[in-house]
């Protein structure tokens, strides 16, 4: 119907015409500079590969010891899960909960969600549920803080460098892998392509099976209420 596709800038509400973008280029809003599109080649395949790698490495990265500090013959080591338990054991429940959510639970949930979305896109089976899942992924996005934790590990190492001998354990290398997989999957995900593909596949499915898509609430309780209440 529309020969030129109309889009709105999500950050300044400017009305714009969609224009084509090449892979590796970015489409910016002329008024506020928001990124409106940044296509990535083979985005679905890349995201699928990275999230499956991330899921495989998740358990060793979180539960195996990261570092061992050796001070005058006494050794102490710990994993990311231990750092959460230590806060709980010293009765810092709120802080512990924050660490649990941002460094342990949400990174996992994000990987699982993105894996399911990419897998269902890859196999062509996405439905409206995939769309809801992908939306929840955006909700959780900034609450997963693995890269902040990584800098935290580096600060800890530097802080202890002259007080104790620092040994790097298996968990440390697994954690770097997990971080790379998480950051890579987020960077290589072409949001626009994902949404368009999910919508296309879900529409095809709904048409085939005769399911109604999610709709706006029926207009019967909309405008009349205003006009009838106002008039005697």
């Amino acid at each position: 119907m529309n020969p030129k596709k109309i889009i709105l800038c999500p950050e300044c509400d400017l009305l714009l015409e969609m224009s084509s973008v090449e892979e590796g280029e970015k489409l910016l809003c002329p008024r506020c500079g928001a990124i409106l599109g940044a296509p990535v080649k083979d985005s679905v395949e890349k995201v699928l590969a990275l999230t499956s790698a991330g899921l495989l490495i998740y358990v060793p990265a979180i539960f195996l010891p990261l570092l061992t500090f050796d001070a005058a013959g006494i050794e102490s080591s710990g994993s990311i899960a231990d750092s959460f338990l230590a806060l709980i054991n010293t009765h810092f429940y709120f802080t512990g909960l924050m660490v649990f959510l941002t460094a342990i639970l949400i990174p996992l949930v994000k990987l699982v969600m993105l894996f399911i979305v990419a897998a269902s896109l890859y196999t062509g089976r996405s439905s409206r549920k995939t769309a809801v899942l992908f939306r929840l992924y955006h909700h959780l996005d900034e609450w997963g803080m693995l890269e902040v934790y990584m800098i935290g590990i580096l600060v800890t190492i530097i802080k202890m460098l002259h007080m104790a001998h620092v040994n790097y354990d298996v968990g440390f290398y697994c954690f770097i892998g997990l971080l790379a997989a998480t950051l890579g999957s987020a960077a290589l995900m072409d949001k626009k392509l994902f949404w368009d593909e999910i919508d296309k596949q879900a529409l095809a499915r709904e048409q085939k099976e005769g399911i109604l898509p999610c709709r706006r609430p029926e207009p019967n309780n909309g405008p009349p209420a205003l006009s009838t209440q106002g008039r005697p």
């Binding site: 990261l66 570092l67 500090f69 102490s76 080591s77 710990g78 994993s79 231990d82 750092s83 959460f84 230590a86 806060l87 010293t90 802080t95 512990g96 924050m98 660490v99 941002t102 460094a103 803080m145 902040v148 934790y149 800098i151 935290g152 590990i153 600060v155 800890t156 802080k159 202890m160 104790a164």
Partner: peptide, 14 residues
């Protein structure tokens, strides 16, 4: 959150 993570790690490791 950096400082919180550092303290959580120090609690375990030190």
């Amino acid at each position: 959150m950096l400082d919180i993570f550092v303290i959580a790690l120090l609690t375990v490791l030190v």
